Amino acid sequence: MTQSAARPAGRRGQRLTYLVKRLEMAERARMEEVLRPLGVTLHQYTALSILEAREGLSSAQLARRHVVTPQAMHQLIATMERDRLIERRPDEGNRRILRAWLTEHGVQVLKECHRAVDDVEERMLSRLAPEEAVAFGSALERCLESLTVPPEGLARHGDRTA
């Protein structure tokens, strides 16, 4: 396969990396639009979603999973705590570590956010047939894995090029 054939382009000949970036920017803009009336920022929504999947994380753990600096996470946590979206409790093994938990209010707000974001995803996929949407999601997961899993680990994770 030639180098150019290995790099498919979009309908207008745009590089896929450019299209992915444009999609991300459009998706983020729409998400910010629908989250704003709920009083939640995109960063807060991401952090709340992470805590929904795994409550009791420390600020440092949450920062790593959110891929932000500890300083940025400290500010984010302070704001979410002030807005009663989360509460922090001392770790039982080390009282200096504060672990974050969703409050009842945070759970309710997150449910509203999920509904709003579901609408954004539905709009994003509205021009795809259901099987295309499934294939698109699967392709994105494989592309992400290709860039995040060390090359030697790809074969173990089902690399389709091997």
Rank of each mutant, 00 (worst) to 15 (best):
V68N: 14
E87L: 07
E132M: 13
I97Y: 02
L51N: 04
Q61T: 01
A5Y: 06
L147E: 05
D91W: 00
D91M: 01
D119V: 05
A9V: 15
L42D: 06
T2C: 11
V68L: 13
L98H: 15
E121P: 10
T103R: 05
Q75T: 08
A116S: 12
E141G: 06
Q3S: 10
A9D: 15
G153P: 09
S146F: 04
I97P: 01
V68F: 08
R88G: 10
G39T: 03
F136T: 12
T161Q: 13
L35E: 01
L35V: 04
L35G: 10
A72W: 05
H66G: 00
G153V: 02
R156S: 14
L19K: 00
V149W: 02
A60S: 14
R82L: 06
L48F: 00
H157Y: 13
L128F: 04
T79D: 09
L42E: 10
E121A: 03
I86D: 04
L57W: 12
A135Y: 08
L38H: 08
A135V: 02
R95H: 12
V117I: 09
I50Q: 09
T41H: 14
E132A: 09
L57V: 05
L144N: 05
V134A: 14
T2E: 09
S126F: 02
T46R: 15
M25F: 01
A116I: 02
A9L: 15
L98Q: 03
R36V: 03
R160Y: 13
V120F: 01
L23F: 03
L23I: 07
S146M: 12
A6C: 08
